[in-house]
């Protein structure tokens, strides 16, 4: 399961960003596929990106929502949510993969506790304020503009480094975004998937579907003896397998002596 998941994550990251010539030329692919959203957090402005980021598209659509109802992006987000839910976080998100790789750096790690659990609510605030509130009220893509470290990493650094005109436009906002990226990178080294747990509005959105998603972790109540090994071993802020904080990665299966956990169609 672990290896298969890693393989799927890597394939996804490459597939989302397979416009390899973009990296050499420092420009953005703008073909027809760009009108489609990928399920994971992957910046539209990554030179390799062949499709769009759902959370970025949602903000753009909300900015002009008074002229046009955002049918497509709401539909596709609901579809991703109801079919896969946070399976997307565990399997199909390149920025999740990046954080998991950073966590492999051998350092003392900070375990989950009541504070990380409380902090996990922050992502819902970010979803409400930066992804919905600011775009609708002030016509700016709040999350992309002020927060998203995936955008800074994939798009911001590359494009600015390769385009003099963009370099000339950078100022305090750019410095702020670089600072945030550094914080998120350092955070991910010491705290497992800290961006996903505390900040990611896309994960927050998909978490609403934890009860209805068609695919994910299942607990066989007849086999389960409620030893709680699954929850104790899990590095996310879960209270039970498959709740809103669960990214459906399936690592708990290795720790279940009762073999009560399975991954598949719910």
């Amino acid at each position: 399961m672990k290896k298969r998941r890693k393989l799927i994550q890597v394939i996804c990251a490459l597939l989302y960003n397979c416009n390899f010539t973009g990296f050499a030329q420092g420009n953005i692919y703008q073909g027809e596929v760009k009108g489609v959203c990928v399920p994971g957090l992957n910046c539209y402005s990554c030179p390799g990106a062949i499709a769009s980021c759902p959370i970025g598209s949602l903000q753009s659509a909300l900015v002009s929502s008074k002229y046009k109802f955002p049918y497509y992006v709401l539909g596709i987000l609901l579809l991703f949510g109801v079919v896969l839910g946070r399976v997307i976080c565990g399997f199909l998100c390149p920025f999740g993969l990046v954080q998991e790789i950073l966590y492999k750096i051998p350092t003392p790690k900070m375990k989950k506790n009541q504070w990380t659990r409380r902090l996990s609510y922050l992502k819902y605030v970010i979803l409400a304020v930066f992804v919905i509130g600011i775009p609708v009220l002030w016509a700016a893509p709040g999350f992309c503009k002020y927060i998203c470290p995936a955008g800074t990493l994939e798009g911001g650094i590359f494009l600015v480094a390769m385009d003099e005109r963009l370099k000339a436009m950078t100022g305090n906002l750019y410095l702020w975004k670089i600072f945030l990226l550094v914080v998120v990178v350092i955070g991910a080294i010491f705290i497992f998937r800290s961006f996903c747990r505390f900040i990611c509005p896309l994960g927050a959105f998909y978490s609403f579907f934890h009860k209805v998603a068609m695919v994910g972790m299942k607990v066989d109540e007849e086999k389960c003896n409620h030893c709680n090994a699954c929850v104790r071993q899990c590095k996310m802020d879960v209270k039970q397998v498959g709740d809103r904080e669960c990214i459906q990665c399936g690592e708990c299966m290795e720790h279940c002596r009762q073999c009560a956990l399975t991954f598949g169609k719910k």
Binding site: Y72, V73, I76, G81
Partner: peptide, 13 residues
């Protein structure tokens, strides 16, 4: 939700 999602996405397209 599935029906709603498909409806919206298809309308969009």
């Amino acid at each position: 939700i599935l029906a709603m999602a498909l409806g919206l996405a298809v309308t969009g397209c």
